[in-house]
């Protein structure tokens, strides 16, 4: 049996209308405990209205080594941004 409580990542929605944001991590033996611990550790000052927990090992992360091929190709696609397009000054609200 694994003796050490696994690591969990905690995501908290600060208020309705906002997304869940990564708040930090903690240790817990199971998901019920992870939720309770997250409540006790990360919302002591009314920081949240909803909590997600996920065991850290279930997160698949991109590797910074691949950052070049993953993220750089997007950099020159400036036509995806509104500032790429020239409009006469007279046009408002566009």
């Amino acid at each position: 049996m694994e003796k050490n409580w696994p690591l969990w990542e905690v995501f908290v929605r600060s208020k309705n209308g906002l997304e869940h944001r990564h708040f930090g991590s903690l240790h817990a033996a199971d998901e019920a405990m992870a939720l309770e611990n997250a409540r006790d550790v990360y919302t002591r000052r009314s920081e949240g209205v909803s909590i997600w927990v996920v065991e850290s090992k279930h997160i698949t992360a991109s590797n910074p080594k691949d950052n070049g091929e993953l993220f750089e190709p997007a950099q020159d696609k400036i036509y995806r941004h509104p500032t790429f397009y020239d409009l006469p000054d007279e046009v408002k609200h566009m």
Partner: peptide
């Protein structure tokens, strides 16, 4: 106490 929690979690799983 920590061992108990892990063992319980495993049983539940």
């Amino acid at each position: 106490v920590r061992d108990a929690a892990m063992s319980y979690a495993e049983k539940q799983q």
